[in-house]
């Protein structure tokens, strides 16, 4: 039989199909083991190579066409069927459920995610120290995330492989919006809008193009920022001493080490007493007794200037860290993945 003929027959037959059963029969008629199209395809082996190519190609095309039509028709039937069931199962939202089927208080309590709970704690600690808690944008401009923070265009962090950029549908070459890589992105935005002095923490989600055993493309940070007159490194030190004791325990000590972040000067790395071994040395702290926990420093004068602040008159400090690692240390969670897998067997432990 001619392929065109088969196609026409199929289209005619399909238009007459009235039920799922009809459709199934039609499928057998065309695509079944002894179906019309199957017979053509089987017959191919008797043909010459040239004919095989010509007819074989067209036959396979037809086969795909028919299969797709079946799929669409089938979905149509299922949708119709569900419309019907929808009608049968129709439930008025304002009817009342018998109490026996909904108990408050429930027999088992739900669970708060450990990241939430740790963020509550961070907020509590800084609120006790009279900080304002501030929410920032996760989709930020390149300016606030990088330029205003002194990350010049050649800096490795600006490389595309580290930062997610948002597609600008009108200007495909423009890379203006991005997913913030650090909560510090909120610093200059806040400075511009608020009078001095400033004393805030910014908890929230951050993003980097990393996905492996120890990195998740989305993670959480919190950032502290204080700006005013006569702020010194000594203020930063006392602040972190108090905060870390409240956050990690009364016996926590801190240590400042030299480091570099483009938006602070001097920049430093802050180590805290290892929360696991209390400083005596263990696997988690690689036997040093210290955990490298925060980045910090005195706010760079260029950042203050970007925020519209006179950097000769005022100074400030900033500090920040990742939340996940603190959560993992606190609960001895061995893998970052567990935090975002949302497996009930994990969640119900908290």
């Amino acid at each position: 039989m001619d392929l065109e003929e088969i196609k026409q027959q199929f289209i005619d037959a399909l238009s007459k199909v009235g039920s799922e059963k009809d459709l199934a029969e039609l499928e057998v008629e065309f695509l079944g083991r002894k179906g019309k199209l199957t017979t053509v395809l089987k017959g191919l082996s008797d043909l010459t190579i040239v004919e095989k190519k010509r007819i074989g190609g067209a036959a396979n095309e037809l086969k795909e066409f028919i299969a797709e039509e079946f799929r669409i028709k089938n979905l149509e039937f299922r949708m119709k069927k569900w419309e019907l069931i929808g009608e049968q199962e129709k439930q008025d939202i304002n009817s009342i459920i018998p109490d026996s089927r909904f108990q408050i208080p429930p027999s088992t309590l739900g669970h708060i995610h450990p990241i939430s709970n740790f963020l509550f704690k961070i907020n509590r600690v800084f609120e006790e120290m009279e900080y304002e808690v501030v929410d920032g944008y996760e989709i930020e401009t390149d300016y606030y995330n990088f330029t205003a923070l002194g990350t010049h265009l050649d800096h490795p962090a600006r490389d595309e492989q580290d930062t997610f950029y948002i597609k600008d549908l009108e200007h495909p070459d423009k890379k203006d919006l991005l997913l913030r890589t650090q909560t510090s992105a909120m610093q200059v935005r806040y400075m511009k809008k608020h009078p001095l002095p400033i004393k805030i923490i910014i908890p929230g989600k951050t993003y980097r193009r990393d996905n492996d055993a120890t990195h998740s493309p989305m993670f959480h940070q919190f950032e502290g920022l204080v700006v005013g007159e006569g702020i010194t490194l000594g203020d930063l030190k006392s602040t972190l001493m108090i905060a870390m004791k409240k956050l990690l325990g009364e016996n926590t000590k801190i240590r400042f080490r030299s480091s570099y972040f483009p938006f602070v000067e001097p920049g430093l790395e802050v180590d805290v007493t290892c929360a696991i071994c209390k400083g005596s040395g263990c696997n988690v702290c690689k036997n040093t007794g210290w955990l490298e926990l925060l980045g910090a420093g005195m706010v760079h004068p260029d950042v203050l200037k970007a925020g519209g602040i006179d950097s000769e008159k005022y100074s400030g400090f900033a500090f920040g860290t990742g939340v996940e690692r603190m959560v993992m240390v606190k609960h001895a969670i061995p893998s970052l993945k567990l935090l975002y897998e949302n497996d009930i067997r994990f969640l119900e432990q908290f």
Partner: peptide, 14 residues
Amino acid sequence: LASLGLTEIYTLSI
């Protein structure tokens, strides 16, 4: 919500 018996999850924004 947790006290009502619901469990909080954290999914990726992407």
